[in-house]
Each structure stands twice: as C-alpha cells, then as structure tokens.
C-alpha cells in the first residue's frame, strides 16, 4: 500500500507518524475492551458487538447505541442517537476531502476509516498530501485493527461473567462517555471551553429533567436541542474554529 512505502524522503516524520499511529491504536484498542464488555452487558451478542466495531467503527456512536439498548430505550432511539453522534464524521470527511484527495475507488475505505483519531492525525501532519495520507491511513488502520481486537477480547471476556454489575460495568458506561466528552471540554481556548461546559451542563440538566416523562433514550435525543439552540445563538458571535 502506497503510504507505507515512501519512507526515504522524510524518515523522521514517517517514523513519528508510525509511532503515533501505533500508540493511538493501542490506546483505543484498550478502550475497545470496555466497549466489548459493556455491549455484551447491555444484551448484545458477541457477534452483534463485533459487527458494530467492524462496520459502524465510530466509538461514541457504538457506545451510545449499546447504552440506549441496555437502558431499555429500544432500537429506533438507539439508531437515532448513534446517527446524531456520527454526524460529526461528515464534517471530518468534508475537511479531509481537499487534504487527502481520495480517488473515486479509494472513497469507500477512506470513508470507513474517517474517525476522530485519523482526522486529527491527517490534519496535524499537513506538510503535503502524501504525508497527510500516510498519517490518515496509518492511524485509521492501526485503530481499526486494535479496536476490533479489543472489542473481541472484551466481549468474550464479559460473556464469561454471570453478573456484570459485580464488576461495576454499569459505572464504566457513564465513565466511558465522560472520557469521550472530556477532551471536548478542556482542549479549546478558555472561552471556547466555557461554551462547551455551558452546553454540556445544560444538556445534562435537560436530560435529567426529562427522565420521568419520556421513555429511556429519548431524554438524550432531546438534549441535542441544546446544541442546536447554542449554535444558533453563537453562530454570529464566535470566531471561526480552525481545524488545525
């Protein structure tokens, strides 16, 4: 595959790309252990769990999907929540298009590998199209492989347990969502972070208030209204968010 071959020109850079890609892959693979375990604890089979990692391949949506199913929210709400969370991948792909310039036949697998980690790496190593592509595919493939291995080990491990509650797996679910949320609250400028915290707290509060009135899963969907309202409110006042 092309991006693996062009090592000579910028040896240091490709070395650092490979090291980072591997590190990111191992870290997300470890995280996938908990996804596998949580998914099985939520009532999905090992095969269903693996299908999500193979074909959906976007962590937050996968966690949300099994979370809603586990809470008894039903299939429709689970699908809707996963899709809403996955909407950001469209934005990633839009920004990656001119950077990676995939040929038509490359688009199907480029799309599959378009996730938080591969996007961040492609936009970080932006010296040339070649370097960006190498960073994107090295990271995307590394995460894909480790994410699926981790999922398999986690789901097989958890399916051997009789009661996942004993291991505190029900607490691992919100902790996992919080770990996904955390970088979005802490990695921007201080004014940006303050806005993110406002949206997060308002969304959490709205969802909690709706718990008694709506069936499980729906309060989370309704919380998306906070994001919509905030983006309309702030769309004029804000500085454009640069993607690098």
């Amino acid at each position: 595959m092309g991006w693996m071959r062009n090592h000579r020109k910028s040896g240091d850079e490709s070395q650092s790309i490979n090291t980072n890609a591997l590190g990111i892959g191992i870290a997300t693979g470890a995280y996938a252990l908990s996804f596998g375990a949580i998914s099985v604890a939520s009532g999905l089979s090992v095969l269903q769990t693996q299908s999500l990692s193979l074909f959906m391949f976007t962590g937050a949506s996968q966690f949300a999907f099994v979370g809603v199913i586990g809470a008894g929210g039903g299939a429709v709400i689970a699908v809707a929540t996963a899709l809403l969370l996955g909407a950001r991948n469209s934005l990633y792909a839009l920004s990656l298009g001119p950077v990676l310039m995939p040929k038509k036949k490359e688009v199907p697998y480029t799309a599959l590998l378009t996730i938080d980690e591969s996007t961040a790496m492609a936009l970080r190593y932006n010296a040339s199209k070649k370097v960006s592509r190498r960073a994107f595919f090295a990271t995307g493939l590394s995460v894909y492989v480790f994410w699926n291995i981790g999922t398999a080990l986690g789901s097989l491990g958890a399916s051997a347990l009789s009661d996942p509650g004993v291991l505190g797996l029900d607490a691992a679910i919100p902790a996992g969502f919080l770990a996904l949320l955390w970088p979005r609250l802490t990695s921007g400028s201080s004014s940006e972070n303050r806005k993110m915290w406002t949206v997060a707290v308002a969304s959490a509060a709205l969802a909690m208030m709706l718990i008694p009135f709506l069936r499980p899963g729906l309060p989370v969907l309704f919380s998306a209204l906070v994001a919509v309202a905030a983006s309309l409110l702030w769309s004029k006042a804000s500085t454009p968010a640069e993607e690098n």
């Binding site: 949300a64 950001r88 934005l91 919100p174 969304s203 994001a227």
Partner: peptide
C-alpha cells in the same frame, strides 16, 4: 452545530447512565 452535538449528547448520556 456538528461540533456541539457530541458535547450535548455525551453530557446527556453521562447524566442518564
């Protein structure tokens, strides 16, 4: 909006779960 949606949904998921 696409930047804020995950913040809303993840925060709500943390609270609900």
């Amino acid at each position: 909006m696409t930047g804020l949606l995950p913040v809303s949904l993840l925060a709500a998921l943390v609270a609900i779960q």
